[in-house]
Design a protein around this nucleic acid. Sequence first.
DNA 1: GAGTGGTCTAGACCACACC
DNA 2: GTGTGGTCTAGACCACTCC
Lengths: 237, 237
Amino acid sequence: MGQGRNQYQIIRSALCEQIESGALPAGTKLPPERLLSESFGTTRVTLREALSSLEADGMVYREDRRGWFVSPERIVYNPTVNTNFHTMVADQGRTPETRLISASLAPATTRIQKLLQLPPLTPVYRVQRLRLIDQRTVLYVENYINPEYFPGLLDQDLEQSLSDIYRTHYRTRYSKVNFRLYPVGIHDEAATHLRVTSGSSGLLVTRVNHDQKKRLIDCDFEYWRQDAIVITAQARK
Amino acid sequence: MGQGRNQYQIIRSALCEQIESGALPAGTKLPPERLLSESFGTTRVTLREALSSLEADGMVYREDRRGWFVSPERIVYNPTVNTNFHTMVADQGRTPETRLISASLAPATTRIQKLLQLPPLTPVYRVQRLRLIDQRTVLYVENYINPEYFPGLLDQDLEQSLSDIYRTHYRTRYSKVNFRLYPVGIHDEAATHLRVTSGSSGLLVTRVNHDQKKRLIDCDFEYWRQDAIVITAQARK
DNA sequence: GAGTGGTCTAGACCACACC
DNA sequence: GTGTGGTCTAGACCACTCC
């Protein structure tokens, strides 16, 4: 087992070994599939089987229609600590970046309305952003924010950390955070923005956030590239 | 996008709709791939593409060489709450079961030795178990336990919850727990026991556990079927 | 426009599950 | 032993990326 007798597992081990030895450093683009499959004396289908298996392990990743790349190290994400994306990434010696996709005021969908405990059709801020580590897209986030507590939010620079904006402009900070973590397939908008092929597996982190006055201020949906993070937390009793 | 113009996405939607409508209840075995591919007027390769995509979403799962099944609901797992597997599952109206695979005393590997902060080659208890929900294998666990604190542990009934044994026989309970959560590919032993095809994606939860006296008592590696759980936690500040 | 990845076809053999 | 899923071949076309 393990390195196996199957064709694709042999290819798997070969690539794996090259990556671990450092011959293929993080971020390297692999040769075209047709070329690789020839090198291994096999077909593209089998080669892709091997690559998909490495992808599940987080050793390689793909960008839709661009090719295969060697995965960088995972970022350690502790959702129980109230730090923000930029601080977290910078603290680990990596380079964070946030890109605003859109921000608008619109009626809450049923789901959002329920999560934020709002009356039907209340307008909420919807902010869509993309987050990168060392130039690689790792996270697509949608925030839904109760506008009552943050008048004029859309005029702020939304490529900053939201928690920074809350703190400096609204004297509000996250206090109680409920989060959930689903392994899911990534589709549609999230897939497009992350440059992931639709349906590939990822991690959905949803958060419902209260402030220091116990007000329900916002919720978010974070779609992470599956190989970008390891989640950590601590419990005491 | 979404339900898409591709063949496999059309099949995806069709199956998805059947499942959500309740026509295919949780646990149902799907018809053989050859039959299904004929029904959809396509080849097995394309059908499997569709099924794999549904698998990533946690809507169907497979048992190695046995076929495809409709996934049951996910169990909500809160690792920051010190409950045990049996209580957690039963509280959600499901039926838990634990099967002992093996239990023995053996020298710690380098990795375990480091995690448990032991001198080289210290013997540790190694317990391998399989856990089921409603007869479905969802979790393969390896525990590594410092034997100093639990003399005679191997004589206990290890199909019970370990935390129960610790509490009733050793007056010891979990106090501080550090855990980490990796999306990974499942291989080798874990794959075999979970009846998962080697390399399919899953969730690895590792825990390092201290007792009420702050002693480092054990650590474990939990390999979860990717569609079996949703993880939840709460943070306060 | 060339090349690449995404998708798809129409077969095949083998090993294992189940009868 | 039969049938199934797991693996593999040798092609093909299309849509997109990148030049």
